[in-house]
Design a protein around this nucleic acid. Structure first.
Lengths: 124, 124, 124, 124
DNA sequence: GTGGTCTAGACCACT
DNA sequence: GTGGTCTAGACCACC
């Protein structure tokens, strides 16, 4: 349910962040749920505790979770909202990329077709 | 015509590569045109020659230019085609992002609207 | 009358200490009154007895209560005085912060206004 | 000009953060100025580079500085504004403390006197 | 030279 | 058991 690729060029701690964010968005993790402990996860993933600490600290600074010393780390109340708002801003990212393609002479129809392709069929 | 931002977090050599690619795509540089020499450019941009060397080596390895020892470096015949093909692969990138947005519950209409926005009005 | 927030980042034992101190200051607890027993309180608050023990030990070391083996723990005679003296030292804390704000160019009037705001209206 | 107390209970990296913030507020460090490099500072202060890295990363996430890989770390344009706004919110902190003192029966005059004391005389 | 990431292993405070 | 901090030392990409 939570995996990392140690050979990827994207840093392990960012992979963890992305995974946790995904789990929150999908509802796999809900507000007030406990996140796996640093030590437990470090064993499971064979990753150094410090690396996990870094990932969790970053999640915390984004307001997605909070820590209770001596107890554990929990998904924050507003986490799903924060993530959804964040993703919505991805629309401007798509716009930017479409503009780039346009400048290379790629037709609008081709871009629209790609979007349609993403939205057809069942969810992955 | 060729500028770099030393305060940007994107590596200078990548900025150079992007600039050259842009100039080839826009026709500002055509096949067989000479690229500015490393020494000349390093003075113009106040950039370390090593950095420029790295950019040019990368361009060469992508088949976008070739060097003639003792003479200089020239835009290759196939450069525009290579770049256009490369950019077309951006379509799958857009598809991937659209799929992500879909999973967060963002409607297809919103994505299409973003694409339309990119394609309306004059070119930048 | 005595509550703790297990999700707060301030340690539970400190919350307990603050609560007891507050009750002494407000007169809810008077000298020679018995404090709730560790066992009883641990059940009431669903808190680990060790945590309560730590809070009580700290209160004792501050001279706010004393334990009578085999009987219980009682608010000390001097407790209210000690606490009031302790709080009065908060004045120098305020002075320190005001000095900081001054160094950032915040006007004295603004600070005075904040104090006035705290002292107007009924007690919470 | 930049010192840390390794025996303090406040974490070294927070001491560093506070020092840098102070230097920005006082004008000792201006926007676009370079911060001391991680390695250089780690030698100067006899502190592990990782600890400094942590302090700098935190400063960066607060928008106070930005890093240019291979070049260095620089004070951001908006740093002074961010800090000033942050300090202004200290007014509500003062209000909170004043309210506490009030509840212990300390007169408003005493609090006002403390503020006056902070604002009289030359700047430290 | 710079910053960025990671590992290994230690100690502390809190529950 | 939990999270938080720190050290020591390594490797990488970038300039």
């Amino acid at each position: 349910m939570l995996e990392v690729d140690k050979f990827s060029r994207v840093p392990i701690y960012e992979q963890i962040i992305a995974e946790i964010e995904r789990m929150i968005l999908s509802g796999e993790l809900s507000p007030k749920d406990a996140l796996p402990s640093v030590r437990q996860l470090s064993v499971e993933l064979s990753v150094n505790p410090n690396t996990l600490q870094k990932a969790y600290t970053e999640l915390e600074s984004r307001g997605l979770c909070f820590s209770v010393p001596g107890s554990g780390r929990y998904v924050s109340e507003k986490a799903p909202d924060i993530l959804r708002a964040q993703k919505r801003s991805g629309l401007s990212e798509i716009e930017r990329m479409a503009r780039e393609l346009r400048e290379c002479g790629i037709e609008k129809d081709e871009v629209i077709a790609a979007v349609n392709k993403a939205y057809e069929g069942g969810l992955s």
